[in-house]
Amino acid sequence: MPELPEVLAWLLKAALIYGGLLGTAAGMTLAERKVSAWIQWRIGPNRVGPWGLLQPIADGIKFIFKEEVVPQGANPVLFRLAPMFSAVPAMLAVAVIPFAGDLSFFGHSTTLAIADIEISALYVVAIGGLGVYGVILGGWSSNSKYSLLGGLRASAQMVSYELSLILCILAVVVMAGSLNLSTIVADQAGHVFRWNLWSQPLAFVLFVIATFAETNRHPFDFAECEPELVGGFHTEYSSMKFALFFLGEYCAMVVMACLTTTFFLGGFEVPSWPEAPWWIQLPAFLAKAGIFLFLFLWVRWTLPRFRFDQLMSIGWKVMLPLALANLFATGAVISFF
C-alpha cells in the first residue's frame, strides 16, 4: 500500500490538473468569442459579469435547462454513449503530461504529472486516437444524413492525420531516446536552442498542422462544416449532450497545446534556468501552451476552410511523405553522427 503522503499528493495533483483542464476548456469557450469579436471588430459577450467573464457559467446553466431531444429512429444507446466517448479520451490523455518538475508537499517529492509512466508518449497517442469514436458514433446514431456525413468525414480525417502526428512524435522520441515525456522534456533543458523546435522544425510545423486536423478545428473542421452539413456530427444533439461534445473538443485543444509545448518547446523548462522551482515552471508551461491555444483561435477566424478532397490529398500526399522523410533523416543523423 502506498504511504498517506503519496495518496494525498496523487489526489491533490489530480484535482489541480483536472480542475485546471476543465477550467481552461470553459475559459476557451469565452476566449473563442472574445478573440473572434476582437478579430472581426466587434465587442463580443460583455453582459454576464465584468467583461463577460461569467459567460461560460451562464452557458453551462443554460445547457442544463435545455430540452433533451433524441430524434426518432436514432439508436438510443449509442446516441447517449457517443458524447461520453468524445469527452473522456481527451481528459484521460492529460494524465501523463508533466506540468512542472520536482515539487514536494508533506515531505513527499514528486513531479507535477498525475502518472509519470515510462511509455507516456505512446499512451497519449493511443488514448487520443480513441476520441474519433465519439464523432463517428454520434454521427451514425443520430439517423440523419448530415450527421452521418460529418461522422464519416471526421473518421477519415482523424485516422489520416494521426499517422503524420505519430511520425512527428517519433522523430522527437528518436531525438530523446525515450518514450517518457519527462525525459523528453529533460532532454531539451538548458539553452533555448536545445528545444526541439530548432532541431526538428519540419516535424514541428507538420505536428501543429496535424493537431488542427485531429481536433477538428478550422481550417479542417469538416466534421461540422456548417455551410454544407448544418452542424455535422452533432446536428441532432441538444442540451448537455451537445455540451459534452463541446467540452471534448476544447479539452482536446488544451491537450494538444500541452503536447506541442512538451514535444517542441521544452515543456516546463525555463530557458537557461534548469533548476527553476515548480511555481516558476508551471506558469512557464502554461504561457507556452497558451501560445498554441491562441493560435487555434487566431487561425479559426483568419483562414477559410479547405475542401475535403484537398484535406485528404494534403494529408496523404504532402504531410505523410514529409513526416516519413523527416523521421528517416532524423534516424540517419542520430545513428551516423
Binding site: I119, A126, G129, L130, V132, Y133, I136, V159, E162
Partner: peptide, 22 residues
C-alpha cells in the same frame, strides 16, 4: 507489459476498429 497494452490500443482500437466502423 504497458508497451504492449498501449500498442494494442493504438493499433487495434485507434485505427483498425475505426476503419471497421467506417
Amino acid at each position: 507489459f504497458p508497451f504492449l497494452a498501449a500498442t494494442q490500443l493504438l493499433v487495434y482500437a485507434g485505427a483498425i476498429m475505426v476503419l471497421f466502423l467506417f
